[in-house]
Design a protein around this nucleic acid. Structure first.
Lengths: 236, 236
DNA sequence: ATTTTAATATGACTAATATCATGATGATGT
DNA sequence: ACATCATCATGATATTAGTCATATTAAAAT
């Protein structure tokens, strides 16, 4: 982790984050209170069970939020991309963090102290409103995830995950709609799906044999989206 | 469903719901705008995929929130008890409802129209704050659930579910700490755990043989809480 | 009270997935 | 370039949980 300085005004992510609803004064306040760091791929920004001292705003890069079990096997709860806030759920709920945030690529991430953030949420109605809405949306997503894990087979969930990854890590700059632009190790994919790494490897091979996907280096290309969608919705 | 009239002021649930933060004026406003109904066990209050026209306040009884898959197999997402609000997540997110609410006992539930509710959330800072906090808390719960479903075995999840049900449906009036006061059919238990009904029946028999639980009529009594806790945390 | 239906229970079998072992491939550091 | 380590791949086997069939019991309905 390397400290850098980055003004919120020059941040690419500001327009897509909750901060876009700040006025000038608020913006300067946040900008002067925050500290900004550069993290390398693999480094963690915060850890499960810790008490949050503020929130993090992802300026550049991508992170995975994970929870680990006794044997150290991790479950990926969700991903966050540029412009997203991290750790605010725990802060607002006044609870310890429930997940660990780890960079899956080189990342720039700013820390905004607790008081500054909570003040903002309390006083800026727009931010408040959007945060409320965002939380409600996320809860819906979580409910869908719960159903998926409870009712779908590993095969169905893997198909679903491939489509999800493609969509989540798609950016404007990438014209190639079918290439999954993030390259996660098989183990990470297994930790999204909730299965063993070997099972993911086997099923991916099977998908390749069936011409549903193809491997391009470390990346996966979707060859037959319709078929993957059919598989992912076989039961649910 | 039978329409009744119930003044919020005389409602047992008001002190534990978000409405407890209303002032007199707001209280009267809600009270005059709402409509109140009595539902029998098994009846549904609202349905998955529908557009919410308002929110529901559970005055008396308990409901299960479920999502169904193609084969009609339902997954229980969560339960709600007296004083809880239903359907507000979808309303705030401006999305269709993601779950169906079905009464698991005779229930009294009030409908508060969309505009009245949204106005309240916007204008009453206390309600807003508590709702924000509650949503954040619920998201943490959902994340735990996701990990549990992804990493724990059915046996572990069943032990967890029994402890959860005991805790969730415990009320002050019940002195008996170890009796699970709600009596759900095995199928419902399976739909919480995310498994087949037969598997639940088998595992419950096994738990009984091992003297971890006992059956009292339709209800389950916890005989060895420590052992159930050990089982439920075997891996996570 | 008796029929009908739903819920619980149990056995036999099957399918899905995990685990363990081992090898191949590819990436990384020196 | 070569050694080292991590990732990917695949086979063999074990385990878990699902499915189907069929009793048994309990609850509702007539």
């Amino acid at each position: 982790m390397q400290k850098i300085h980055l003004d919120c005004k020059n941040c690419d992510a500001k327009s897509i984050s909750f901060l876009s609803y700040c006025n000038e004064v608020e913006f300067d306040l946040v900008s002067s209170a925050k500290s900004c760091s550069h993290y390398k791929k693999g480094q963690s920004i915060f850890y499960e069970d810790n008490i949050p001292m503020g929130i993090y705003c992802l300026s550049k890069g991508s992170i995975k939020l994970t929870r680990s079990n006794k044997d150290g096997k991790e479950q990926i709860i969700r991903f966050a991309r540029e412009g997203e806030f991290l750790g605010y759920r725990a802060l607002i709920a006044d609870e310890p963090l429930v997940a660990t945030a780890t960079c899956i690529e080189d990342t720039v991430c700013c820390f905004i102290p607790k008081t500054v953030f909570l003040d903002l949420v309390e006083k800026n109605t727009q931010i408040n409103k959007h945060m409320l809405k965002s939380l409600c949306h996320d809860l819906g997503i979580a409910d869908e995830r719960i159903q998926s894990l409870a009712q779908k087979s590993v095969r169905e969930r893997l198909a679903e995950t491939l489509l999800f990854l493609q969509k989540t890590f798609q950016h404007e700059s990438i014209t190639d709609e079918n290439l999954i632009s993030v390259s996660l190790p098989r183990e990470d994919i297994a930790n999204i799906v909730g299965t063993a790494t070997e099972t993911v490897i086997r099923l991916l091979s099977e998908f390749r044999t069936d011409k549903l996907i193809d491997m391009e280096g470390k990346k996966i290309r979707i060859l037959n989206r319709a078929a993957l969608e059919r598989i992912s919705h076989a039961s649910v």
